[in-house]
Amino acid sequence: MANHDKDVKYVGDSRVVAEKHDGTPPSYSEFPGKSEPFWPDFLLKEWMVAAVGLVGFLVLTISHPAPIGDQADPNNTSFLPLPDWYFLFLYQFLKYPWASGDYVLVGTVIVPGLAFTALLLAPWLDRGPERRPNRRPVATTLMMLALVSIVYLTWAAVDSAASHKSANHQGGGGDTEDIPPVSEDASPGEKIWAKQASCIGCHAADMSGAGTVPGLTDVGSRLSAEEIKDVIVNGRGQMPGGMFQGTDEELDQLVEYLASLK
């Protein structure tokens, strides 16, 4: 090996020589302990482990074939949109009232933008020479907080998707034993809401909304009864009209119920 010279100055702990060098390959001789040649010793071990891992991966693909659903049908209004699991935390974030509706920019741009910019610029935000996690408490704490939030949001999204699914099943299945958990003394409008699979498909059984779909828990404070009825009948924006299932009388009861939510 070439530069065993102890007088060579490196940039930090890297192998980049602080002074101009002649292009000879770097050496790890200054690191403590037993180093091992990459070729062929280390690579052989690496490939043996990789071969075992590959077999495990193949077993997974054979035992769990990749899912494929029915051909996309843009008119299918009862379908619950759900992204791949690694986007769920971002998706769940948009369900909170302070990150949706009028404040949707908080959920789509400001918070994710700040988080990803901070990640990109981490080397300039955390400039100290210390590398151990316990010696740089701010960086470590922030990353732990981000991790906990991501795990919590993903869990919350999976949880609410599961409850949506059961709500959809109850509404669409028409199984009398599966009537949603609406109490006996609920208003007629509330009972009608619980039967509307296509409304629940986007706005959620608890009316919390999803993504860019607004929640309905306070719809009465935003729209009058006439406006609500107009939106249900004629649609608005991404919401299609004419999805209500029931008589005109039931529609009026539902509108009355929604208008009372403030």
């Binding site: 390959p25 770097p26 690191f31 403590p32 302990g33 037993k34 180093s35 990459f38 690579l43």
Partner: peptide, 9 residues
């Protein structure tokens, strides 16, 4: 590409 040492740590 390939002729380098893998340090112990």
């Amino acid at each position: 590409i390939a002729d380098h040492e893998v340090p112990e740590h």
